[in-house]
């Protein structure tokens, strides 16, 4: 790496220095995430379009009203999903801390924070699995919607189709993120990054993990709050 760059602000494309000043892999991770953002965006916009073209829609506070070990028929809207949201935010924070520890070549803190991130991801997946299972027992699945619209009229299956498709696609991303983080943990423990002299790989995994959190911000708002 020949660049001694503390790239000055003038003439970014003037040549003689790296225009982005990040390594190749990181730029490519950003481009991948951008394409992924368009995929999720397409899903969510499609959901929004269908919802706008329909007269009624189920009330999320009626649909998502339960949580684990709660008695039958409990009415606790937003409780469980806020726990899931905070789990994901906290796991995002521990990931930033892992990236930061990597900057300082602090292997022990990288390992600690990665483990916490993995635990957070697994906890989120567990929550989602419980919720899917619960909804499935209530009769909700792709192609079947037991819930009524907010105003008491019959609802279409669009609601459940979009819910399971989009949260499923997001859950799949969380799952891949957990796998990636486990690989990062193994590589850290095997001193791979110490040998390379840098922890840039953790940063790329971190970008992916934050993106997963970012998508959840949108999914959470679109399905549970609005």
């Amino acid at each position: 790496m020949a660049t001694t760059a503390t790239a000055t602000t003038t003439k970014l494309w003037g040549g003689g220095k790296s225009p982005f000043n990040v390594e190749y892999g990181k730029v490519m991770m950003w481009y991948f995430l951008m394409s992924d953002a368009f995929t999720f965006g397409a899903f969510l916009i499609s959901y929004g379009t269908i919802r706008f073209s329909t007269n009624g829609w189920p009330d999320p506070n009626e649909v998502f009203r339960s949580f684990p070990f709660a008695p039958e028929g409990v009415h606790a809207p937003l409780v469980f999903v806020s726990i899931m949201t905070f789990i994901l935010i906290i796991s995002s924070v521990t990931m930033v801390l892992a990236v930061q520890a990597g900057h300082n070549m602090d292997k022990k803190r990288v390992v600690n924070n990665l483990i916490w991130t993995i635990i957070g991801g697994a906890a989120f997946l567990g929550c989602q699995a419980w919720e899917w299972n619960h909804l499935h027992h209530e009769g909700a699945w792709w192609g079947s919607n037991p819930f009524l619209n907010h105003d008491g009229t019959a609802s279409s299956t669009n609601f459940t189709n979009y819910f399971f498709t989009i949260t499923g696609f997001h859950g799949f991303h969380v799952f891949s993120g957990v796998i990636i983080n486990i690989i990062m943990l193994i590589m850290t423990l095997a001193d791979k990054f110490e040998q390379r002299g840098h922890y840039l790989m953790i940063e790329k995994a971190g970008l992916y993990w934050h993106f997963v959190d970012l998508v959840w911000v949108f999914v959470f708002t679109c399905f549970y709050l609005i």
Binding site: A7, T9, L12, W13, P19, F20, N21, V22, V27, W30, S92, V93, M95, V96, E203, G206, L207, H210, F211, D213, L214, V217, F218, T221
Partner: peptide, 22 residues
């Protein structure tokens, strides 16, 4: 929601501290 998205991308994903080109 947009504010949350901004903070995640700008600070957690570090985009705010990258070069303007990126």
């Amino acid at each position: 929601m947009m504010a949350k998205a901004f903070y995640i991308v700008a600070y957690f994903m570090h985009l705010k501290h990258e070069l303007k080109n990126l």
